[in-house]
Nucleic acid binder design. Structure first.
Length: 631
RNA sequence: GCCGACGUAGCUCAAUCGGCGGAGCAUCCGCCUUGUAAGCGGAGGGAUGUGGGUUCGAUUCCCACCGUCGGCUCCA
């Protein structure tokens, strides 16, 4: 094994970061440190948690002032703030939010005490007689079911309330002692959104107000700046501005169109992916986009996945379905021959484009689409190959993610749910192999007991982007179901037929979503190797265009993606255009450069490197490409 | 799918109370021949998302649909 660390030089982001990227990395690190600290002291025990929880109560009090008939649901602290769900007689507007925020801040200044009190079930029911949601919570708490946060409560049922001013809420706390511990200048209401009571689509739709609260006003400002940066990096804006991808409502929601620049990046990603797979012992396959109902009946998708599949199309009086997954097709290839244990493991990879019906409300740029390309592969092996295959695929995944600049990786192991297909012994073996692989790679991980799919345990890998947000990319997933359904077998040493193990895995998830994450991670300023245009020749006057084209040609011969800006604009405008397109190298050529056979190199970080021979520039750029750095 | 908001030129946004839809950028055409983030001038560009309704008259008010956004839900 081994050989899965590609280009060790590509550690971190390099030194010549654009200033704003550097700022954001620092901020993300800071937030990460903040998160780590929170973990250490336990966010739930922290003062910040009390502040947010208490701010939620005060907000509810302010809402009650505006809407005396308001019904209250729950109002917990969350990652960067808090929310509270209400049932109100009319929809809230932006103006309402401002009024509520103002009222809330007045209340915060009133030095309201938060007083804890335990009450009897009878008192509780009387106190909240007009609050149906609270009554439901009381009932559930008494039944030892779920608590205010919808989490399972194991403690003996105990009801408590918190009073602040004349506002009383069913709550287990903790809270600040007094509202003067909350700085009104560090509190802000953010937005209103719909939310189902207890997240259940069959229950009433409530109005949720999101707010944020911090210990110091400066932290609030920092958080607002972070939100601004998130907006600035929104891939939906950037893919348009950088002329990478578009969507067309007339032609269908959730379907991405790759423009030449985006397509070039995609090709770069896919070429890299294929090359690494070939090196890594995978074989490539291609399979059709549609399949007859037999295939989906056999796989079981028509039973349990139909709501995500598009309606069938009739061909020769038979139903054909567009594929939502590639696995059944790979299995068809497997079954073309009698397989021997000697040819296992088989590792078949495909950039397979699938279509899944997603409800209109969940579509979101490239992150959630209706047609996408999975970087899929299936590993088919014998029981005693499991251990090595799992470790191998995990290492491969980590190398892949790191190659794209994601260094912070967290693993999640999901184990056998109550209802599961396949023999428990196989589950056990599979889970252990996953666990040992994670340990062998020294990853920290969390276990989601019973969180696996019914057909097998899995490892998910989440990365953290430059803004400190985490995204699930890789999934490595055992399947004990499909080999049974398709009756996959191999002939063992003993001459008898055996059932192989099958592992699905996608490393990047889908090319579309991964691309969106890359765009946001780098804010559109990609590492040089991924840039659709790596260098732009900027002739100062028209008489320099010929030399610029000559250099452009040399760069192309050297394998660089270069273009000449022969527009009528002035140099300053050309530089501005190139900056906005985040081209890493701007090569200014005028009389001096043409004379000396050089290029004046400007980086998008705004560093001006001065003139250098073309060959020197090529060497520099090739180094950056090889190292996969930003420059 | 559900709740709410939104939809005006390729992009970002104007348009008073329901009274002849504008600007900047971009595009095109000229002039300028430029040394590190926007040179100057001119022109073209719109069924105001789609379909109905109210009205003498609808970008504006009402309804439905499509799409987008903030969430919820779902996620083999």
């Amino acid at each position: 094994m081994g050989g899965t660390t590609w280009h060790p030089a590509s550690q971190g982001c390099g030194v010549l970061l654009c200033s704003y990227i550097r700022r954001m990395v620092i901020m993300a690190e800071k937030m990460e440190v903040e998160m780590e600290e929170k973990k250490v002291e336990d966010y739930h025990e922290s003062q910040l948690y009390r502040i947010r929880h208490s701010a939620a109560h005060i907000m509810a009090a302010a809402v009650l002032d505006e809407f005396p008939d308001a019904k209250f649901a729950i109002g917990p602290p969350i990652e960067h703030g808090f929310y509270y769900d209400f049932d109100l007689p009319r929809p809230l507007t932006e103006d309402d939010l401002q009024v509520i925020e103002k009222r809330m801040k007045q209340m915060l200044r009133q030095n309201r005490q938060f007083e804890y009190e335990e009450i009897s079930p009878e008192q509780a029911k009387e106190l909240f007689a007009n609050q149906p949601y609270k009554l439901e919570l009381i009932r559930d708490i008494l039944q030892g079911g779920t608590d205010e946060y919808g989490e399972k409560s194991e403690e003996a049922p105990k009801l408590s309330i918190y009073k602040s001013g004349d506002f009383v809420d069913l709550c287990r706390g903790p809270h600040v002692d007094s509202s003067n511990q909350i700085n009104p200048k560090a509190v802000k209401l953010l937005n209103v959104a719909g939310a189902y009571w207890r997240g259940d689509a069959d229950r009433p739709m409530l109005q949720r107000i999101y707010g944020t609260a911090w210990e110091k006003p400066a932290e609030l400002q920092e958080y607002i700046a972070w939100i601004e940066e998130v907006k600035k990096r929104d891939h939906r804006r950037l893919v348009r501005e950088l002329d990478l991808i578009s969507f067309h409502e007339e032609a269908g929601a959730g379907l991405a169109y790759w423009h030449p620049r985006g397509a070039l990046m995609r090709k770069t990603i896919e070429d890299f992916w294929r090359d690494r797979h070939m090196e890594g012992g995978y074989d490539l396959v291609y399979t059709p986009h549609i399949g007859k109902s037999w295939l989906w009946e056999t796989s079981g998708h028509l039973d349990f996945y139909k709501e995500s599949m598009y309606s069938p199309m009739e061909v020769d009086k038979m139903d054909y379905y567009v594929k939502p997954m590639n696995c059944p097709f790979h299995i068809m290839i497997y079954k073309t021959q009698l397989r021997s244990y000697r040819e296992l493991p088989l590792r078949w990879a495909e950039l397979g484009t699938v279509y899944r019906f997603e409800k209109s409300g969940v579509l979101h740029g490239l992150m959630r689409v209706r047609g996408f390309t999975q970087d899929d592969a299936h590993i088919i092996c014998t029981p005693n190959q499991i251990e090595e295959e799992v470790l191998r695929v995990l290492r491969f995944s980590l190398a892949m993610l790191r190659a794209f600049g994601f260094e912070s990786i967290q693993a999640y192991l999901s184990t056998r749910p109550d209802k599961a297909a396949g023999e428990p012994a196989r589950w056990e073996q599979a889970q252990e192999s996953l666990r040992r692989a994670i340990d062998a790679e020294g990853l920290t991980y969390e276990v989601d007991e019973g969180g696996g799919a019914f057909y097998g345990p899995k490892i998910d890998l989440h990365i953290k982007d430059a803004l400190g947000r985490s995204w699930q990319l890789t999934t490595i997933q055992f399947d004990f179901n499909l080999p049974e359904r398709f009756d996959m077998t191999y002939v063992g040493e003993d001459g008898a037929e055996h059932r192989p193990y099958m592992v699905h895995r996608a490393l990047l998830g889908s090319i579309e979503r991964f691309f969106g994450i890359l765009v946001e991670h780098y804010g559109g300023a990609f590492p040089v190797w991924l840039c659709p245009e790596q260098a732009r020749l900027i002739p100062i006057a028209d008489r320099h265009i010929a030399y610029a084209r000559e250099v452009e040609d040399q760069l192309r011969q050297a394998g660089l993606r270069a273009k000449t800006d022969a527009s009528a604009s002035r140099m300053g405008a050309k530089i501005r255009d190139a900056q906005l397109m985040k081209v890493p190298y701007m090569l200014v050529v005028g009389d001096r450069e043409a004379e000396e056979g050089t290029v004046a190199v400007r980086l998008r970080s705004e560093a001006n490197l001065g003139a250098m021979p073309v060959a020197d520039f090529v060497a520099r750029a090739q180094q950056a490409i090889h190292d996969r750095t930003l420059e």
